[in-house]
Design a protein around this nucleic acid. Structure first.
Length: 421
DNA sequence: TCTGGGGTCCTAGGACCC
DNA sequence: TCTGGGGTCCTAGGACCC
């Protein structure tokens, strides 16, 4: 049996932990650049603010009903998330952190009649120890635990266990396909066209036919709905396969120099994250694009792959490669809205695979580089992010994303600790 | 005026190998 | 006139997730 623990309106709940006066009030958290609503309290949902709504489209509701608005504060949410996960670890030998606000637990050590009470207990303890409200869904497969969780969200107890095939069948008959984990809008449309509309329809379809007509992913979902577990619980988090750093600009940029600064910033930030994760990259990819929503301007988007001659985690190497690639995709007279850099082909940093052409001198050089980069990381850790940067990143930062309503870093910065008077 | 960021997996097609 | 079988790797694109 699996349990899925999902934090309720997670980002909003994080803000509420440190600002309790926000309880029972409509609250939303915006995405980067204050773009879209990505977390809503249930009061905000009740006002008709949809998930992912662009802020300018809901501004009227926000002003009319005094909705409290926050810019995303991801360092705070990440920190609260790890506290929640730490608490959850105590409830099962196997915990899989699925996302910033969700985790699966293996509960196969419990007998069926104890599951529901155990779920309620988990909910109570997490709330008490972290301040975060969660919902608990329990089922014989991950997909069914997800279904149970969506029911738990509407249940005043915040917990629901899907234990018998009869109950499961009745419920699946009432759930439409697009509400099932792993089935998005495209596939549900295709399935509807084939006369499959409820989760039960898919559960009763022949998985071999699904495999043929669609793919292996959907066939597994169908089996999972039937109660046959195809997805196991991951005991360890597998190493990352790619890293991305990208941002939309606060105001559109046009000049090559401005874009190069933004690209350099992302390349630099990737190099730093690679060192933290203990990885090197041997393939970079940069992407530039104009505003896809701009009806008047011509939409332009382009990507360039850049193989490196050897795996690296050095800011200077990544910056140079990315800036060179920018020359190939940059077009004049366009208003760019976003750029990003991706690191691919990751390998462990300690996997020594010296270049055929690297001489002894080169080895010494790379040792020195490693010390320099270590010092940079240390200084930025001690004096704060961005204290020491590469000049190519630019000092004025023309592309700063908007962030007008960010809460203090309550748990990461001594100067911003909440005060009690 | 104003529309996020960071990931994963699968598939098809092309280029290449012996 | 007649031209194999069995593979791998890479890339782009499409779908999905939170």
């Amino acid at each position: 049996m699996f349990a899925l623990i999902d934090c309720n309106a997670f980002f909003v709940s994080c803000e509420r932990v440190f600002q309790p006066h926000l309880e029972k009030k409509p609250v939303i958290v915006l995405s980067s650049n204050d773009g879209c609503a990505i977390s809503r309290s249930c009061e905000a949902k009740a006002l008709g603010i949809p998930m992912g709504a662009p802020f300018f489209k809901i501004r009227d509701i926000v002003e009319k009903h005094n909705v409290h608005v926050f810019s995303a504060n991801f360092s705070l949410y990440g920190d609260i998330s790890s506290r929640v996960m730490e608490v959850l670890k105590a409830f099962s030998p196997t915990l899989e952190v699925y996302s910033i606000d969700e985790a699966f637990l293996d509960l196969s050590m419990l007998s069926h009649n104890k599951l529901f009470a155990y779920g309620c207990h988990i909910k109570k303890i997490v709330k008490k120890w972290t301040g975060i409200p969660v919902s608990v869904g329990i089922g014989p497969t991950k997909t069914l635990a997800k279904v149970a969780n969506s029911i738990a969200k509407k249940n005043p107890l915040g917990c629901y266990a899907l234990l018998t095939p009869e109950k499961t069948e009745t419920l699946l008959g009432q759930i439409s396909l697009q509400d099932i984990w792993g089935i998005g809008s495209r596939w549900s449309k295709k399935l509807n066209a084939l006369n499959l509309t409820t989760a039960l329809d898919l559960a009763q379809a022949d998985p071999r036919w699904i495999r043929k007509a669609f793919n292996i992913v959907l066939a597994k979902t169908a089996l999972e709905l039937k109660g046959k577990a195809c997805l196991s619980i991951g005991e360890t988090t597998p190493p990352k396969k790619s890293l991305i750093s990208s941002r939309s600009f606060g105001i559109p940029l046009t000049t090559f120099e401005d874009l190069r600064e933004a690209i350099s910033f992302h390349a630099s930030s990737l190099a730093h994250r690679l060192r933290i994760e203990g990885h090197k990259t041997s393939l970079l990819s940069i992407t530039v694009r104009t505003n896809p929503f701009d009806k008047k301007g011509r939409f332009y988007s382009n990507t360039q792959l850049i193989p490196l001659s050897y795996p690296s985690q050095d800011n200077a190497i990544l910056i140079k490669a990315a800036a060179l690639a920018l020359e190939k995709v940059y077009r004049e007279h366009l208003s760019y809205k976003k750029v990003g850099v991706m690191a691919l082909n990751l390998s462990p940093e300690n996997q020594v695979n010296p270049s055929l052409f690297t001489e002894k001198k080169g080895q010494e050089h790379s040792l020195r580089r490693r010390e320099i980069l270590k010092s940079i990381d240390h200084l930025n850790y001690r004096y704060g992010k961005g204290s020491l940067i590469f000049a190519s990143e630019g000092v004025k930062v023309s592309w700063q994303p908007k962030s007008s309503w960010k809460s203090p870093s309550f748990t990461q910065n001594w100067k911003q600790l909440p005060e009690v008077s």
